[in-house]
């Protein structure tokens, strides 16, 4: 339960904007509701994504083709659940929603999470698409969040980024193994890449002028880099990496190089699908959300037993 203390000295948005800098605000500050809501939305999205990412990757603990890979995948899923836990706590510290409420929203299909985690992943050679590219993209964004204005969020990111570093190494290692494997392995990797590449490009969302929440989040220091800048940084680092592993970049979506910058032809991407996903209406969304909701329902009895006062 969250207890709201009403205090008269709530900051107004102008004051927040003025004072906004990395880790400027903590639960000791009386933040305006607009700020607390925007920060909650951002952190809840992040926490949900950790949980749904773990959900998507769990089956690969079993499917790992060696004991070391199995241990690495198991550790990764475990880390992601831990990140979710940490982030829900950071979101709770804003006093808008409890963790319980956020988890209920996720089960009910009202919680939003990363586009890439709405698609099914069934084959081992798809795993580097998440564990290398998507995690690499996430890393770009997360590194900038170390400088977000909500201190508990920035603090969570210290631990998360450290662990993510291992995950990406692991993902790159799986990719290297496939990329230097048999002809068939290289083909499977390439076809997985072609399927996932547009989704990966959409990871950062639409270009800035279409982003609804950016302006405010930017002004109050929650976000420190725009989607477009983040995508630039990602492409700068990961296009060469993809090529290094012998992956052919698909012709579409077209990516032009202009004065040292990559320009993605946005019309080549399926934004209808993206928005369908963003509202949890995609077919894959239903599958991921509903199967997780069913699993959560099935253990509701144990949660109930836990809630009972001990010894009664």
């Amino acid at each position: 339960m969250i207890i709201h203390y009403k205090r008269p000295d709530v900051m107004n948005v102008e004051e927040v904007t003025e004072r906004a800098e990395p880790r400027a605000f903590s639960p000791q500050d009386d933040m305006p509701e607009e700020y607390r809501k925007a920060a909650t939305r951002m952190i809840q999205f992040h926490a949900n994504s950790e949980i749904m990412g773990a959900y998507l990757e769990r089956p690969f603990i079993r499917q790992s083709p060696s004991l070391d890979r199995k241990l690495a995948f198991s550790a990764k899923v475990q880390d992601e659940i831990g990140h979710g836990q940490l982030l829900y706590r950071a979101a709770e510290s804003l006093g808008i929603k409890t963790r319980e409420e956020m988890l209920d929203e996720l089960a009910a299909g009202d919680g939003k999470f990363l586009n890439c985690f709405h698609y099914p992943m069934t084959e081992w050679w798809e795993t580097p698409m998440i564990a290398f590219f998507v995690d690499g993209a996430a890393m770009r964004r997360q590194a900038t969040i170390k400088r977000t204005s909500w201190e508990p969020y920035a603090h969570a990111m210290d631990k998360i980024c450290f662990e993510e570093g291992f995950h990406i190494k692991h993902g790159e290692d799986i990719m290297r193994e496939l990329a230097t494997g048999t002809r068939r392995e290289r083909q499977l990797l390439q076809s997985a890449f072609e399927e996932w590449w547009p989704r990966i490009l959409q990871f950062f969302g639409p270009t800035d002028d279409q982003s609804t929440h950016h302006d405010f989040a930017d002004r109050v220091g929650l976000k420190t880099m725009s989607n477009d800048e983040l995508r630039q940084a990602f492409l700068n680092a990961y296009l060469p990496k993809a090529e290094k592993y012998g992956l052919e970049i698909p012709d579409e979506p077209r990516i032009r190089e202009e004065e040292g910058r990559y320009v993605v032809e946005e019309d080549d991407l399926d934004w209808e699908e993206f928005w369908e996903i963003a509202s949890n209406e995609y077919a894959g969304s239903h599958e991921q959300i509903d199967s997780r909701a069913a699993a959560q329902d099935a253990v509701a009895w144990a949660r109930k037993a836990l809630d009972r006062p001990h010894g009664s």
Partner: peptide
């Protein structure tokens, strides 16, 4: 015992 970074370390 379950350290996933065994080989790397």
């Amino acid at each position: 015992t379950g350290c996933p970074a065994r080989k790397m370390l």
